[in-house]
Simulated scan of single mutants.
Amino acid sequence: MNARRMLHLIQQPTPTLPSRTNLLCLVAVLVVATIVAILSLMVGTRDVPPFEVLAAIAGDTSTLDRAAVATRIPRTVLALIAGAALGLAGSVMQGITRNPLADPGILGINTGASLAVVVGVAWFGISSAHSFIWLAIFGAAATSVFVYTIGSMGRGGATPLKLALAGTATAIAFSSLVIAIVLPRADIAGGIRSWQIGGVGGATFERMEPVYGFLIIGFVLCLLSARKLNVLALGDELAAGLGENVAFARIIATIGAVILCGAATAVCGPIGFVGLVVPHVCRLLVGVDYRWLLPFSALGGAILLTVSDIVGRLAARPSELEVGVVTALVGAPFFIFIVRRQKVKQL
Rank of each mutant, 00 (worst) to 15 (best):
P104C: 04
P104W: 03
G105T: 04
I106S: 04
I106Y: 02
I106R: 02
I106E: 04
L107H: 04
G108L: 03
I109Q: 06
I109H: 06
N110G: 12
T111H: 14
T111F: 10
G112N: 06
G112S: 08
G112D: 05
L115W: 07
L115M: 09
A116Y: 10
V117Q: 11
V118G: 03
V118D: 03
V121A: 13
V121I: 15
V121F: 11
A122E: 14
W123H: 09
W123P: 03
G125M: 05
I126D: 07
S127L: 08
S128V: 10
S128Q: 14
A129K: 11
H130D: 12
H130Y: 15
H130T: 15
H130N: 13
S131C: 09
F132N: 14
F132T: 12
W134I: 15
W134H: 12
W134D: 10
W134Q: 11
L135S: 09
A136Q: 08
I137Q: 05
I137A: 05
F138V: 15
G139W: 03
A140E: 09
A140M: 08
A141P: 08
A142H: 07
A142I: 13
A142E: 09
A142C: 14
T143A: 07
T143R: 05
S144I: 13
S144G: 12
V145N: 03
V145E: 04
V147Y: 00
T149V: 08
G151N: 00
S152P: 01
M153H: 12
M153T: 12
M153D: 08
G154E: 00
G154D: 00
R155A: 05
G156E: 01
G157A: 06
G157D: 04
A158T: 01
T159S: 07
T159K: 00
P160I: 05
K162N: 07
K162Y: 05
K162Q: 06
K162S: 05
L163G: 01
A164M: 07
L165K: 01
T168E: 08
T168M: 13
T168W: 09
A169L: 04
A169K: 03
A169T: 04
A169R: 02
T170I: 03
T170H: 00
T170C: 03
A171W: 02
I172K: 09
I172E: 13
S175F: 11
S175L: 13
S176I: 07
S176W: 10
L177W: 08
V178N: 11
V178W: 03
I179S: 13
I179N: 11
A180L: 15
A180V: 11
I181F: 10
I181H: 06
V182W: 02
R185A: 12
D187Y: 01
D187G: 02
I188E: 08
A189V: 11
G191A: 14
I192N: 07
R193I: 14
R193F: 15
R193E: 10
R193G: 09
S194R: 15
W195H: 09
Q196W: 10
I197A: 01
G198L: 07
G198P: 06
G198S: 08
G199Q: 04
G199N: 06
V200Q: 06
V200R: 05
T204K: 06
T204H: 11
F205Y: 05
F205R: 03
E206P: 07
E206L: 13
